[in-house]
Amino acid sequence: MADEKSPLVIILGFHQTFERVPVKGDELHDDVDARGFKLDEKGKRVLEAVEVDWVTYAPAHSPMGANTTERIRHLRPTQEIIEGENAEKTRFMLARWSAIEPAYEAWRKGHELPVNGTPLAHWPGVSAAMAAELRKYNILTVENVRDLAETQLERIRLPNMRDLRNSAKAFIDNMRNAEAAEREVERDNEVASLRAQLEEQNERLAAAMALLEERTSPADAVRENDIAALRAQLDAKGVKYHHKAGAETLRALLQEAA
């Protein structure tokens, strides 16, 4: 599905190289130069091979513009930059890194690069060959096609690019409408489920109230009062009776006592 939040850059790929870099030394135990790098017996800097990760990206607003390839370590916002006074630079670096970081982590784990938007493969409006041609221009999503400027349309070697751009816009609009309709159906189903639960609770409450009324009906109250009165008369006469005896049994005991 399309992402409503537009990324700052489009990730085109990553690669890795190996470089030899000077090693930082321990001033107490190593020979070091003025910059603190470790020196060997001949007074030359000690070098070690390290991995260097690179990313190639293009501006999201102009995927057909010039590509940029930079070291990953130069793109990570440092704490110094985050706490710096140049707020505009900080916002730019954070926004750029937020687009690069998830793709970089996926690449490091050997996974496919995530696409910010609707991949061309999900769009029936282009064939596999057309999608491959669009990727040559760093156009990876339907949203990229929709957002192409007039000057960019003329540079792409595909027929009827304006119609294709209009088709991309219609596809995105229809997809959003379908998503909205799906959310509406989900809301309706949720409301129906809540209503059913409420009706069931009301039925249970009504049954409980009916049972309570039955147990505390006036007839029951009168019956309990009669039993209490009979017990009091038997107690006055000193007649013993079972504590669970009903009214009829108690009346019979009174008649015998009389």
Rank of each mutant, 00 (worst) to 15 (best):
236 A>N: 11
203 E>R: 15
222 V>E: 10
189 N>E: 15
10 I>D: 13
191 V>Y: 14
173 D>T: 08
22 P>H: 00
118 T>A: 07
85 E>D: 10
155 R>N: 08
206 A>D: 12
164 L>N: 02
241 Y>N: 01
211 L>R: 14
183 R>H: 03
56 T>P: 02
111 H>V: 01
131 A>W: 00
135 R>K: 05
31 D>P: 05
8 L>F: 09
205 L>E: 12
134 L>M: 01
249 T>G: 10
217 S>W: 04
37 F>V: 14
34 A>M: 15
121 A>N: 06
225 N>M: 11
239 V>W: 03
190 E>I: 06
235 D>Y: 06
171 F>V: 04
93 M>T: 09
110 G>A: 12
114 P>W: 00
62 S>M: 13
138 N>A: 04
126 V>R: 10
170 A>S: 12
225 N>K: 14
186 E>I: 07
219 A>M: 05
140 L>Y: 06
171 F>Y: 13
247 A>C: 03
200 E>L: 10
255 Q>W: 10
30 D>H: 03
77 P>I: 02
79 Q>M: 13
177 N>H: 11
213 E>A: 14
84 G>S: 13
240 K>G: 06
258 A>N: 15
197 Q>F: 02
241 Y>C: 01
95 A>H: 09
223 R>A: 15
39 L>K: 03
19 E>K: 07
175 M>R: 15
147 D>N: 13
244 K>G: 13
179 E>D: 12
14 F>I: 01
153 L>W: 11
214 E>D: 08
183 R>D: 03
117 G>D: 02
222 V>D: 08
101 E>S: 07
66 A>H: 10
176 R>C: 11
211 L>I: 14
72 I>C: 06
46 V>S: 07
206 A>V: 11
117 G>N: 03
98 S>I: 11
211 L>H: 15
214 E>Q: 08
254 L>F: 00
243 H>I: 10
178 A>I: 12
55 V>F: 01
113 L>F: 08
110 G>S: 09
194 L>R: 12
112 E>A: 15
191 V>F: 12
21 V>F: 00
144 N>S: 05
89 K>Q: 12
117 G>H: 01
149 A>H: 12
69 T>L: 10
115 V>C: 09
192 A>I: 08
194 L>S: 09
31 D>M: 09
45 R>T: 05
200 E>D: 14
166 N>C: 07
170 A>N: 10
257 A>R: 04
128 A>Y: 06
